[in-house]
Amino acid sequence: MSFDDDAYGALTDHADDARWAYGTGFADPLAGVPTAVPDGIDRADLATYCLMLGDDALIMSHRLQQWVTRAPELEDELALANIGLDLLGQARLLLTRAGEVENAGRDEDALAYLRDPTAFRNVRLAERADEDFAHLVARLLVFSCWRLPLLDRLAASRDPVLAAIGAKGVKEVTYHREYAAQWVVRLGDGTDLSHQRMRAAIDAILPLAAELFEPHEAEVRLAAAGVAVDPSVLRGEFDAAMAQVLEAATIETSEKTTDATARRPDGEAQGGQAQGGPAYDTGSGRSGRDGVHGPELTEILAEMQELARALPGGVW
C-alpha cells in the first residue's frame, strides 16, 4: 500500500513502518545501541539526568517549531525547523535512555506525552514564550552557549550512550549557536530600532541564565562519578562566547552576566514581571530541575500532549 492509494492506511502498513508521527508506532531511536549501565552509577540519578537534558531539548524544540510559518523569512523557518529537529533528535535519544535506565516501562512517548508539568526537569529558559524574533534569537543564543560546552564535556562521560549523544550534539549545537549569534549581531548592530529591541531581548533573557549553572544534586553526584557535567564549570566558556557576541552586536547589557547578585532568582522575578513574563516560584530556590515551572510550560504541554492524552495508545 502506498500513500497514493490510501494515505491513512499506509501509515499502519506493516510492510513499511517508517512513517514517523505519534500514533503510528515509533521506532526506538536507540535501536541496537548497547544499553547497559556501567558499574557504580546510580540508576535513579542517571535517569533523572537524562530527563533534564532531554526535557531541555524537547521543550526548546517545541518552542522553535512554533516559529514555523511565523519567522521573518522562509530561510529562517527552514533554519528554525532544522535546529528544532536536531534538538528533537537529541531529546528522543535522551528520553529513551532515561526510560531504559529507569526501567519502569516508560518509553520516549510515555515520557514526552504523559507526564504532568511538575514532572518535567527542563530549565525555565527553554519554556519561555518568545515575545518577538529578538527574544527568540537571544534565548537560542543563551541556550546554545551553555549546551555546547556541556555536550562537549559530556563526550568524555563514562556512560557510553551519553558520551555518544554529547559527541554528536556538539557538531549540531555549534551551528545552532552560530545561527543565533549571527542574528543577534545583525539586529544589535543594525538600525536604531533593531538595536533597541535586540538589547531589550538580551536584558529580558539574560536573568534566566542563572539557573543553567546551578547544579542539581543528581548532577553533582554523577559529575563526581565521571558521568555528568557539573554545570557550574561551564560559566567561563559561556561568558566568553556571550561577551564575543554582545561586543560585535554593540550591546552593552545592563545585566552583568558575571555578577552573581544580578543573577539571583529574585532579580529574575522582577525582570520577568517588568517584561510581562510570568512570575516564577523563586522564593524557595527551587528550579525547573525540581519541577518548578511557569505557566508557560503548562501551555506548551497542553498543546503538545493533547492528542496523546485524548487518544491514549491510539493508532491510525
Binding site: 513502518d17 517508517a18 521506532a27 529537529l85 536536531d86 533528535g89 537529541q90 549523544i165 549540531e172
Partner: peptide, 13 residues
C-alpha cells in the same frame, strides 16, 4: 547522520 534525521527509520526499513 544527524541526531534528528527523520530518514533513519526509512533507511532501516
Amino acid at each position: 547522520t544527524y541526531s534528528g534525521c527523520p530518514a533513519m527509520e526509512a533507511i532501516r526499513d
